[in-house]
Every structure is written in structure tokens, then in C-alpha cells.
Design a protein around this nucleic acid. Structure first.
Length: 256
DNA sequence: ATGGCCTGCAACGCAGGA
């Protein structure tokens, strides 16, 4: 079973790339973030025609998440349960015996912005909900754009100002997720140094490989023995008019 | 050298991203 996450930075612009990527990679599950569109204009038909079911929760201009799956998906949560949030940032669904949580974590903007305490509150609410969710379904994968570079080796010093992505508080929140029993699948394997999942559009950052690793696939302890690979797929970042994020893909030896 | 680019909205620049 291949599961993946990709911040597409507008599904309207990136739909052709997503359809191409589905055809080439054939993931069983693909979580999308920053679809940036209302549900009434979501391209459901094109995705279904590609052989995928899809759940989506979006809004105009900002945010927006979707879960594409080969097998039927049963909606578990639209937004973090108990956390009143206007922003469409989380979808959870059960797919083929696996609980898939797709998150577009807040950026935080700057340490003195109102958006930064919102980021910390969102992270706390997520952890609180996941604690009970994991008891309900121990086979759980949390995928998405975390907007957190967990360690120094996940952030190129040349990537520029990214204080809200590397702060001690957000890194502590990330470790809090690990403390719940989640494991960063990327670090289960040997990885090339300076592997990133995001590169700024400016400064020729991709060509110079100046970026951050902020898109992650976390697996519950129960799933870890089944994980055989995790990697960033840089190919879509090389296309014309790319998203600034690349997909992250993990392989699980659990069927279907 | 703190900009540089991209997207959407709706206007003829802005907010937001990371």
C-alpha cells in the first residue's frame, strides 16, 4: 500500500500534474493540501475518472484539504473535533482498515503574528484529539504539510526566514506527536543529506537545493513494522509551473 | 543587499504563503 501527501498550492492550477502523478505513481491514498477552492467547484469528476474516490473540505482562496483513495473512504472528521476552526485544514477517514489523517498545519507567519498562537493552539488541539483517535484505531497515519522542520538537519540555513517552522515551541509540539506513539517514517530509512520537501519559488531555491523538510508521514507504532520505504519525490517540483512542495510517499506492506 | 515568486481576488495592488 502506497500512501502519499502533497501540498499542491491550488488544485485548480495543479490538477493536470496531480492526474499525471496518480497515473505514474498509482498511490493507494493521496492527501492534498492547499486546494484553495470551495467544495462546489472541486474537480470530483476528473479524479473519479482517474480511478479514485475523493473526500474534500475546502474554502475560497485559502487552505483546503482532500483525501484521494483507491478503496472507499469513510469520513471520520472534517476539522479537528472539538476545535472550532473556520479554516479547512483537516480531514480524517478510514480507508482499507487504516485511519488516514490529512492535515494542513498553520504556518504561523511570524513569531509576533496572531497566526503564531493560532498555530500552537491548533497543534495542541490536534495532539489532544489524536490521543483518543489512536485508542480508537491504532492503525493510523498522519500525513500532510506540517509547516514544521523537526530538527536542524531538516532546515537549510540558506532557506531564509522561517522562524515559525523551526521554533523550539513548534518542534516541541512535533515531539509531542512522537510521544503519542507516532513515528516519522522518513527517518526509518537512510536518507540523503539535505533532503527537502519545500523550496521557495524565489532565489532559484530549487536549483540551489535550498529548502525545508516540512511535509511528513507519521505512522502509529502498530504500522511501523509494515513500512518498507519513505521518500520525497522531487520530480513534480521540476515541472513547468510547479507547486513549491514536492510529494512525500511511504510504502506499507499491509495490502490491499 | 530582508528583495527576489506564485496564487487568488478583484482590481489595476493586496494578503498569504514558508
Amino acid at each position: 500500500m502506497k500512501i502519499a501527501t502533497w501540498n499542491v498550492n491550488s488544485l485548480k492550477v495543479r490538477l493536470p500534474q496531480v492526474l499525471d502523478w496518480l497515473a505514474v505513481q498509482a498511490p493507494d491514498v493521496l492527501c492534498l493540501q492547499e486546494t484553495k477552492m470551495e467544495d462546489k467547484v472541486f474537480p470530483r469528476e476528473a479524479i473519479e475518472a482517474a480511478g479514485y474516490q475523493v473526500l474534500f473540505s475546502g474554502q475560497k482562496t485559502y487552505n483546503g484539504v482532500a483525501i484521494l483513495s483507491r478503496e472507499p473512504a469513510i469520513l471520520v472528521a472534517d476539522g479537528i473535533p472539538g476545535f472550532g476552526d473556520e479554516q479547512k485544514r483537516l480531514l480524517a477517514a478510514d480507508v482499507a482498515g487504516l485511519r488516514v489523517v490529512c492535515g494542513y498545519f498553520p504556518n504561523g507567519q511570524s513569531l509576533d503574528s496572531d497566526k503564531y498562537p493560532y498555530k500552537l493552539a491548533w497543534l495542541a488541539a490536534l495532539a489532544s484529539w489524536l490521543k483518543t483517535a489512536l485508542l480508537e484505531q491504532p492503525r493510523l497515519a498522519l500525513l500532510g504539510d506540517f509547516n514544521i522542520a523537526p530538527e536542524d538537519r531538516d532546515a537549510d540555513p540558506a532557506a531564509g526566514d522561517c522562524a515559525t517552522l523551526v521554533s523550539e515551541e513548534v518542534r516541541a509540539a512535533f515531539r509531542g506527536l512522537l510521544d503519542l506513539g507516532l513515528v516519522d517514517s522518513f527517518r526509518l530509512f537512510e536518507q540523503p543529506a539535505k533532503t527537502w520537501s519545500w523550496w521557495d519559488y524565489r532565489m532559484m531555491a530549487f536549483r540551489r537545493n535550498m529548502g525545508l523538510r516540512i511535509d511528513h508521514i507519521l505512522l502509529s507504532r502498530e504500522l511501523v513494522p509494515a513500512c518498507t520505504a519513505c521518500a520525497v519525490d522531487k520530480a513534480p517540483r521540476k515541472l513547468e509551473r510547479p507547486s513549491d512542495h514536492a510529494p512525500v510517499v511511504a510504502e506499507l506492506d499491509i495490502g490491499p
